[in-house]
Design a protein around this nucleic acid. Structure first.
Lengths: 349, 349
DNA sequence: CTGTTAGCGCGTTCAC
DNA sequence: GTGAACGCGCTAACAG
């Protein structure tokens, strides 16, 4: 039924538990024959010693920090992870970093429940995922302090946040200033299963910029789908077949922008000569491919989040608030002035 | 001295330990005033319950798999990580992935010792790092099965390996076939502090290809330094100032190849028109920037390594050996036929 | 509602 | 060299 314990091993080997423990840690000398008997019993029973019992007995404390995020495979999360690691290395406390990858959105809550129940971590970093009031209470009652990165629902207590609406505005404004008027938006579904509203917020910024420049809203220019390069590729293809295709695209993430660019190029058009593309995030890749984007300091976000969490864990009384630098428009090579018309900067008011 | 326990809390609050436990787990109803007293005591004492004790008592098992690697910030390790996560998700056992980033090489052994002592993980994935006989014994005796990824020293038992010599040969051969004869090698120091011989192995392949094509070895064309984009950039600058600079560069990793390309372009030359550059790894980035490289299936390496480790942990009796697909030359846009001379494919024998 | 007690599985004294 | 007993900190079952 239950896993075999040292007692089971001892009984089978015809020795005491002390001896079993000794061969396990080869502390004191044990006679070769006894050792053999014990090892045999261990093998036969498939015995594996319990981590918990061992830790409890030896008094070794090992502190874990969990990081839970979706899309661990996506670049933006890698950047955050890098920041977390960096912060961890800078302070020389030996915390381990435990990764929880939310592969299926439905399981997110379930994973949170498990984390709370298992008491496997001392603190939790929640990247991009929504935290409901219920989930906050869950973690709080389990005694697990947590810090959220990005948009984080009503349950967020300590958050490294950014102004996604403003970011969406910045990106769109850049395109408008370049004279573009047919500007598409490519983003995640608003009601995404993970519950975070990033796409909708950036879209809101997009809308407000359009409005400010008196550019009419065009429903066909707003394309939503699953996060990722492939979907962005498909959505862009749809845009290109429109009777009046956009002259510029604002993709809500760099990786989606990459998908856009690939679709555009595959269909024989050029970026930025024929279409301008702007992304969001400024992941490492963007620097290499020369993508114009909005920098949201992802790595630093992970870094600050980890610092904040360590504060919470190590010296809860002297928490310093951490703030991200403001979003930054990074102009590179994928956006260009709209050549179809000479347009002054600001539309008439 | 030691951390406060439930007993300390109970004493201070003037209640029994059962009550303390109850407010901790808010299992049964506790009178508000009692609860308040307990919470106060917890706050004052700075009490935090022990994970180990809780787990032991509740009988909850939580299994951890550790992944230890240097350069977590580098793309190639991210790819491996992705593969590991993927394999973990595919089997529905709830293993946690604990990350150990070797930030300073000196601490690698120390970290291994800690992992063995803490018994924090049930199994270990060791990426690229060397495992000595001593370290193997350490892990074995601690009852921690491990799988190594890449070159892995004499202590390796289960390994997902690749033929780095052959890879170095493939890359160099490609350049030779394109008619290049002045071919530089940019790689890590051979005696790197982490102890893994990757750079030297790929260099060996480079040498053997040169020899096969009767190309004389030129010492100045071999540039070694710390791993990373920046060092590769500097080394490339040195190459460019040579009286007779190379016409092609083989960089031992894609990220170093990127450094090469940036240096070349910064100094007004073009890739591949003026210089050809080939990397090694085929990380995601390379696809986007069109880098010619040798694909070593990094993600799959992490995937297979994890599968193997899970075998070791879950059904140790039915271990299937895992093998990586062969190395693959991926020709993209950074290598081109040498234009300085018309060269037939193979040099005279 | 609350205090008491008996384990959880292992390491580690002790005596033998 | 080896077995028996105690304790690590917590939860849960049982009385009260």
């Amino acid at each position: 039924m239950s896993n075999p314990t040292v007692y089971d091993v001892a009984r089978m080997a015809g020795v005491g538990v002390g001896t079993v423990s000794r061969v396990l840690n080869n502390s004191t000398r044990v006679s070769p024959e006894t050792q053999e008997k014990v090892l045999d019993a261990i093998r036969v029973l498939g015995f594996r010693r319990s981590k918990a019992a061992r830790q409890l007995s030896t008094g070794i404390q090992h502190r874990n920090i969990g990081a839970i995020m979706p899309f661990i495979t996506h670049p933006s999360f890698v950047e955050r992870l890098r920041g977390m690691q960096l912060a961890l290395n800078h302070q020389d406390n030996d915390f381990n970093l435990v990764l929880y990858n939310v592969s299926e959105p439905d399981r997110y809550h379930e994973q949170l429940l498990a984390i709370a129940a298992q008491a496997a971590v001392d603190g939790l970093l929640i990247a991009t995922l929504n935290v409901s009031d219920e989930q906050r209470d869950l973690l709080t009652q389990a005694g697990i302090p947590f810090v959220t990165l990005g948009d984080a629902g009503t349950g967020a207590l300590n958050c490294i946040s950014l102004d996604n609406v403003h970011g969406g505005y910045l990106a769109t404004q850049h395109l408008l200033e370049l004279g573009h008027r047919r500007i598409a938006y490519i983003g995640d579904e608003f009601t995404n299963v993970y519950g975070f509203p990033t796409s909708e917020l950036r879209y809101t910024g997009y809308l407000s910029a359009l409005k400010e420049y008196d550019v009419p809203y065009t429903a066909e220019y707003v394309c939503l789908g699953a996060h990722g390069e492939e979907t962005a590729y498909r959505l862009t293809e749809q845009l290109l077949t429109l009777p009046e295709p956009p002259t510029a695209i604002f993709a809500m993430s760099d990786i989606q922008a990459v998908g856009c660019i690939q679709a555009i190029q595959f269909h024989g058009q050029r970026v930025p000569e024929d279409l301008s593309v702007i992304g969001f995030d400024d992941v490492q890749l963007s620097r290499y491919i020369g993508l114009t984007t909005v920098r949201q300091h992802l790595e630093q976000s992970g870094y600050l989040g980890m610092q904040l969490l360590l504060d919470l864990l190590v010296n809860p009384d002297s928490i310093v608030p951490r703030e991200l630098p403001p979003l930054e428009l990074i102009v590179r090579d994928t956006t260009r002035r709209y050549s179809g018309q000479i347009s002054s900067s600001r539309a008439s008011g």
